[in-house]
Simulated scan of single mutants.
Amino acid sequence: MPAPSITFDELPSGARAAIEAETGPILKIENVSTGLNSSLSARAHTAGGVAFLKGLRADHRWVWTQRREADVNPYVTPLAPRLLFHVIASGWDVLGFETVDGHHADYSPGSADLAKVADALQELASLPCPDIELRLAEQRLSSYVADPADAEAFAGDALLHTDWNNHNVLITHDRAHLVDWGWATRGAAWLDPAHWIIWLIAAGHTPDDAEELAGRLPAWASASPRAVDAFAHAGVNLWEEIAGSAPDDWTMTLRDAARVWHRHRKVRS
C-alpha cells in the first residue's frame, strides 16, 4: 500500500521549523504528487533557491528507505540530485534534495529519452558499490524464484537502483537523473537492465525490442540466459504480489508486462 500523503502545512510545527532551519525561511511551497514510498513530496522555494522535500513518519514501516537514500547519496551524485539535508523532528523524517528541472522519462518506442536512460544505466554500472548497509538482490528475490538456488544468480558486487519506474528518471537537456534510491541494492550488474525491460514492455516495446535495448549495455553481457529466465519468473511473482487481488491500472500494466516477458523467455528456451 502507498504511504498516505500529507501537505507541508499539515506537518507538525516542529518538523516545519527543523526544515526551515536548514533551508532558511520558506517563501512558497509547491506540494506535488507523492510516490508509493513517501508521504510528503514538495518543492520549498527560499531566497537561496528551491529544495525538493521528501518525507515519511518516523514510525512508518518504510522509514528505513530514508536512511538508505541519505547513505547512498554521496556515492551517486551527479547521477542523482545532491542531498542537502536530512532532518528527523516531531515524528517526521525528511530529506531535502537539490531540485532537478526535467520531465519524467518517456519509455515508449522511438522516444528520444531512451538513449539518455541507457547512458544512466551504464554510468550507474561503472560506479563502485559503496561499503554501506544495502539489501542483497539474492535475498530480496529469493521468495519469488521457482527454486531457492536460482536466486544465487542474482548475487554480485554492483550497486543497483532496482526501481525503474519512469517517474524515478528525470530527463534534462543533457542527461537522465535517477531519484528515489530507497531500494538501492547490492547484486549482479545485469539486474538493473532486467528491471528496466519490464518497464519497457509496459511502455509498449515487444520483449525482443526491450531485450535488444538492454543488450546494448555492457552489464547485460554478464547475464546467462538461465539467470535471466529465473529473473523473468521472479518478476511475475513480484508484480503479482505488488498488484494484489485488486490492482490499479499501473500495477496491472506492470504485472501483465512481466507475464508477457516471462512467456517470451519460456517459448524461446
Rank of each mutant, 00 (worst) to 15 (best):
118 A>Y: 00
118 A>D: 03
118 A>I: 10
118 A>N: 06
119 D>S: 13
119 D>F: 01
119 D>E: 13
120 A>H: 01
120 A>N: 00
121 L>V: 13
121 L>E: 04
121 L>R: 05
121 L>W: 02
121 L>S: 06
121 L>I: 10
122 Q>S: 07
123 E>L: 03
123 E>G: 04
123 E>A: 11
123 E>N: 05
123 E>V: 06
124 L>C: 03
125 A>V: 08
125 A>P: 03
125 A>E: 05
126 S>G: 11
126 S>T: 11
126 S>H: 05
126 S>K: 00
126 S>P: 12
127 L>K: 13
127 L>I: 06
128 P>A: 09
128 P>R: 08
129 C>E: 13
130 P>Y: 09
130 P>N: 09
130 P>S: 11
131 D>W: 09
132 I>S: 12
133 E>V: 14
134 L>K: 03
134 L>H: 03
135 R>K: 11
135 R>M: 11
135 R>Y: 15
136 L>K: 12
136 L>F: 14
137 A>T: 00
137 A>N: 04
137 A>M: 05
138 E>V: 02
138 E>A: 09
140 R>P: 00
140 R>F: 14
140 R>E: 14
141 L>G: 09
141 L>Q: 13
141 L>P: 02
142 S>K: 14
142 S>F: 08
143 S>Y: 10
143 S>K: 14
143 S>R: 15
144 Y>I: 01
144 Y>R: 04
144 Y>F: 15
145 V>N: 08
145 V>I: 09
145 V>D: 11
145 V>G: 10
145 V>Q: 05
145 V>Y: 08
146 A>H: 07
146 A>F: 05
148 P>Q: 03
148 P>E: 00
148 P>R: 04
148 P>D: 03
149 A>V: 04
149 A>M: 01
151 A>M: 05
151 A>S: 14
151 A>F: 02
152 E>H: 06
152 E>M: 05
152 E>N: 06
152 E>C: 05
152 E>V: 06
153 A>S: 15
153 A>T: 12
153 A>C: 13
153 A>L: 07
154 F>R: 10
154 F>Q: 11
155 A>P: 02
157 D>W: 05
157 D>L: 08
157 D>A: 11
157 D>K: 07
157 D>V: 09
158 A>T: 08
159 L>P: 15
159 L>C: 13
160 L>W: 01
160 L>K: 01
161 H>F: 03
161 H>E: 09
161 H>D: 09
161 H>L: 02
162 T>M: 01
162 T>Y: 00
163 D>L: 02
163 D>C: 02
163 D>V: 02
163 D>A: 01
164 W>A: 12
164 W>S: 12
164 W>R: 10
164 W>N: 07
165 N>E: 12
165 N>A: 04
165 N>H: 06
166 N>G: 09
166 N>D: 13
167 H>Y: 14
167 H>W: 09
167 H>S: 13
167 H>N: 08
168 N>C: 10
168 N>W: 03
168 N>S: 10
168 N>H: 07
168 N>V: 04
168 N>D: 13
